[in-house]
Design a protein around this nucleic acid. Structure first.
Lengths: 162, 162
DNA sequence: TATTGTTATACTCTATAACTATA
DNA sequence: TATAGTTATAGAGTATAACAATA
């Protein structure tokens, strides 16, 4: 397999949309790579980190993360099998399960959270401290402009339908 | 379906890695939405835009975009069926096909390229002109730092193996 | 013997529909 | 009648392996 050279530049290579998507996609890959040794998938971490910030039912987690509730079942199954969360019948609504983190689950969240600043440092390697904070601020403005919910990653939802 | 409120903030929500991935993912979705009326998938556009910037064989396109050559077959099949590209036996290597764009294919590339500045404007709606150019420059620095090839989007490759 | 393109098959992920138990 | 959770099935997308033609 050879590395192929570019003959003529494309029109979109320096566009904001392309750069955001390109760099963001790679950033997501690097994050997933750091998750692998910990034994957690990005989707599982999305669920677990929100469980850790307050017990929720499967339906509420599904709505928050825009994951279909049918798919939430196997996600919770897997995390329960790994001993990260437990299902507890809600006392106010006996149809629902409250999903609560175990101490092992909280440890996993802590381990992942500890990776994030390291990844940030790696990503901003060529940036000064002021450039890094400027970038964070600019990205936050765009996220707000797009109406993105804090700490909810669009791609954990899968392809959109509802 | 209800919108669920956040109880306590996650640790990663303001991290550079998360913001890049979150905003980049949404940017990619918005790009795909603009492609839909034109009738071209993001992966197809990745191939077609590079075909338009210089004829290449299927294997070279596969290497450049890191798409497996087996999957390149059906991609080219679909674009050939739509009349956007043609297969031409290479004269220097009779095993290979040179993929050349048709005039219809070039028109499609032009139509997509015309959407990109519009999307850039939408994304940068809350940014001043100087902020937009600063952001572009910062993202380019990060892309360089990550060793990303110009105009090659990581996610068109699918999940990595080779 | 290696490489280009091809085909067939398997695996993963997600969507859809239908079921149960509770409300 | 609607909702929370579950199960089963189907579909899209990608990976793997094996093949024919050419180098």
């Amino acid at each position: 397999m050879f590395v192929v050279e570019q003959t003529s530049p494309t029109a979109y290579g320096n566009s904001l949309a392309f750069l955001l998507s390109q760099v963001g996609s790679r950033s997501g890959e690097l994050f997933a790579e750091r998750l692998r040794p910990i034994g957690i998938a990005p989707r599982e971490f999305a669920v677990l980190s929100h469980v850790a910030s307050g017990a929720r039912t499967q339906q509420e987690l599904a709505d928050l993360l825009r994951i279909h509730r049918n798919n939430m079942v196997s996600l919770i199954d897997a995390m329960e099998a790994k001993g990260w969360v437990g299902r507890h019948r809600s006392e106010s609504d006996r149809r629902a399960f409250e999903i609560r983190p175990t101490s092992a689950g909280l440890k996993v969240v802590g381990a992942v959270n500890a990776e994030v600043p390291k990844l940030d440092t790696a990503l901003g390697e060529r940036l000064s401290e002021s450039e890094r904070s400027a970038l964070t601020s600019l990205l936050t403005k765009i996220a707000d402009g797009l109406g993105l919910a804090a700490a909810v990653h669009p791609s954990v939802a899968g392809r959109r339908s509802s």
